[in-house]
Design a protein around this nucleic acid. Structure first.
Lengths: 102, 102
DNA sequence: CTACCATGTAACCGCACGGTGTCAATCACG
DNA sequence: CGTGATTGACACCGTGCGGTTACATGGTAG
């Protein structure tokens, strides 16, 4: 499942936690964070530290995969070469205005 | 590629950025973060905000996938049911001591 | 040699992250 | 009914994140 915003991770974490039938307290203890953190994170707090998120995912046996956004599955022909130029073009025009979060 | 620590993401980002031949200033501008942040993040700062990391990955056309840590590839038979009990066992014994990062 | 760019790093600062502690609401028990 | 567990929300606080600015270094042209 693709992670578009932190809410995706949050939902997954909460779901997984429910599947495991463990409480926030238990997860917090396992991951080494505070219960407040778990609570806020599961609510979709995008400012959560990456390291802590990783710890929680680890505690739930969830893992993050890093991949090319363009390649749907595997890179068959010439691994990453096409979309590079494609990206470079988008760098000509500039301006950032992404803010789907919170 | 599996993300074990933030350094994995950091390395990927830096690599991708080099592939694209863009500077930290450019990436920072595209992602809407400061150059200092890029610099520190690429150095492996694990306290980076998840949201910002997501922004940078997006700017580089990299994406994060969330998946089961146990399922190596696809989950064919009964989706997530085996490892749940397996995980539950690990919750009996407690104590958290994961700290591969910095 | 002198620019210029890219990058690391320092100092400074506002602000909010994350931890601790607490309370109320909710639900499931017996 | 009362009791306990779970969770959201609050106040409080110290620390450090992230932004800005500035400087030093190393590489690369010219």
């Amino acid at each position: 499942m693709s992670v578009r915003s932190i809410k995706d991770v949050a939902a997954a974490v909460r779901g997984r936690r429910h599947d495991l039938g463990i409480s926030q307290v238990e997860l917090a203890r396992r991951a080494g964070v505070s219960r407040k953190w778990i609570s806020e994170f599961e609510a979709g707090k995008s400012t959560a530290e990456f390291g802590l998120v990783l710890r929680v995912l680890d505690a739930l046996a969830l893992s993050l995969e890093l991949r090319d956004a363009s390649s749907t599955q595997d890179g068959p022909s010439d691994r990453g070469a096409v979309d590079l130029d494609l990206l470079l073009n988008r760098f000509r025009a500039s301006d950032a205005a992404e803010a789907g979060d919170e």
